[in-house]
C-alpha cells in the first residue's frame, strides 16, 4: 500500500487526470440537463488531454522550440513533441463537437421548450403516437 501511495504521489498528473475523468463521467451520467452534460463531456475531454500530455513531459527539459538552429539539435534537450501535436488536434476537434452539440441543444429547446432529457424523451414519444 505504501508502495502504491509512493507511485501515485510521483505520478500526480495522471492521478488528477483520472479524478477529473471520473467527475466528468459522473456528471455526464447523472445530470438531466443537456448543458451540464455537455460541460461534463468537455471536462472528460480535458482530462484525457492532460493524461496524454503528461507522458510527453521529461524532467528538466524544455519545450521543443529550437532557439539556435545553427547548432546540431540534441534529443536530450527537449521534451517529447509527439503528444503535444496529437493533443493540439484534439482540442480543436473538441470545440467542433461542442459547437455541434450546442446547436442540436438549441433546436431541441425550440421544439420541446425544455432541456431536461427525460422530458424530451417523453414528449418525443408522445408525438410518435
Amino acid at each position: 500500500m505504501s508502495n502504491a501511495i509512493a507511485t501515485w504521489s510521483g505520478d500526480y498528473y495522471q492521478v488528477f487526470a483520472i479524478i477529473l475523468f471520473g467527475i466528468g463521467f459522473i456528471s455526464l451520467l447523472l445530470h438531466k440537463n443537456l448543458i451540464k452534460k455537455i460541460i461534463g463531456l468537455n471536462i472528460m475531454d480535458s482530462s484525457v488531454y492532460l493524461f496524454l500530455t503528461s507522458f510527453g513531459f521529461i524532467d528538466g527539459r524544455v519545450a521543443p522550440i529550437v532557439a539556435d538552429p545553427s547548432v546540431p539539435v540534441q534529443m536530450e534537450t527537449y521534451i517529447n513533441p509527439l503528444p503535444t501535436g496529437l493533443v493540439l488536434t484534439g482540442i480543436v476537434v473538441g470545440v467542433s463537437v461542442t459547437a455541434f452539440s450546442l446547436a442540436l441543444t438549441q433546436r431541441l429547446y425550440k421544439k420541446y421548450h425544455t432541456l431536461n432529457l427525460d422530458e424530451i424523451i417523453i414528449l418525443a414519444k408522445r408525438e410518435e403516437v
Partner: peptide, 20 residues
Amino acid sequence: VLFLPTFGGAGNPTENEVME
C-alpha cells in the same frame, strides 16, 4: 497508473526512435 512509467523520467518508453 501503478504500472505506468514514472512521470517525467528520462528513458521512458515514449522516448524512442520516433521522437529521436
